[in-house]
Amino acid sequence: MKIAFSTEGESLESLLDTRFGRCPRFLVWNFETNSFTLVDNSQNLQATQGAGIQSAQNVINTGAEALVTGHCGPKAFKVLQAAGIPIYVAESLPIRELIDSFEKGTLLQLKEADVEGHW
């Protein structure tokens, strides 16, 4: 199973970026191989609108089965929900710690968008 984390960094020590739509990249952790890949999301830093939707599309394209981020707006939530990808929210902590929390099942799952969308 693979899970995606929004981040500004490039390693497991990097902090979670609590922004979803405008985070520069995703770290995708693979539980089978215990390794990760980095997926660029920087085109959305430039987007004038719809950054959340395209970030969601990027997460879907990585094949991740879950997403860990800080906040999620209504449009991105809708896209991820349609793709069957659950969203977990956390504070800006090192990704290594968050992988542990995910395995222990202590991360909070988002049942609806928690920030207002803007366009």
Partner: peptide, 16 residues
């Protein structure tokens, strides 16, 4: 950025 493909559907966000 008004269109996404999720699951087996194309989603269009009219307001964008």
């Amino acid at each position: 950025n008004a269109i996404a493909i999720a699951g087996n559907q194309v989603m269009i966000f009219n307001e964008l």
